[in-house]
Write a protein that binds this DNA or RNA. Structure first.
Length: 108
DNA sequence: GGGCTGACTGACG
DNA sequence: ACGTCAGCCAGCC
């Protein structure tokens, strides 16, 4: 896989995230084969154009993108999917962080 | 064809 | 706890 670049792999992984769960940029990057390619993932999400549930991809600290209108949309979508939020306004990663299974990754 | 930028992360001072 | 530095890949000038 990844013949089209890490890009395709990232989309593939992001699409595997089930409804009501979330994953971090770094997590997806690591799965995609990148050790510190979180930026690539973030950029991929920006360019996804809705092709993948980018709203399920958040920062490692449970927060959304620092300052963007997208943050509001993301939070709203996550709430609709049943993702829990902490008092600080961050995602309850302990409950909603996606735990990728080997079976799911084998489809990559 | 070279260099900068970006929805990030983790380590260091 | 906060600011800075370096590392990854693809797209744009």
């Amino acid at each position: 896989m990844a013949a089209q670049g890490v890009f395709a792999t990232i989309y593939r992984i992001a699409a595997l995230v089930p409804r009501g769960k979330i994953a971090t940029y770094g997590q997806i990057a690591r799965i995609a084969g990148l050790q510190n390619g979180a930026r690539v993932v973030g950029w991929a999400m920006m360019a996804c154009g809705g092709a993948v549930p980018a709203h399920r991809v958040i920062k490692a600290d449970g927060g959304l993108c620092k300052d963007h209108e997208w943050e509001h949309i993301q939070r709203q979508l996550l709430l609709e999917e049943g993702v829990l939020f902490c008092k600080n306004g961050k995602v309850d990663m302990a409950q909603c962080q996606w735990n990728p299974t080997e079976d799911a990754l084998s489809e990559l």
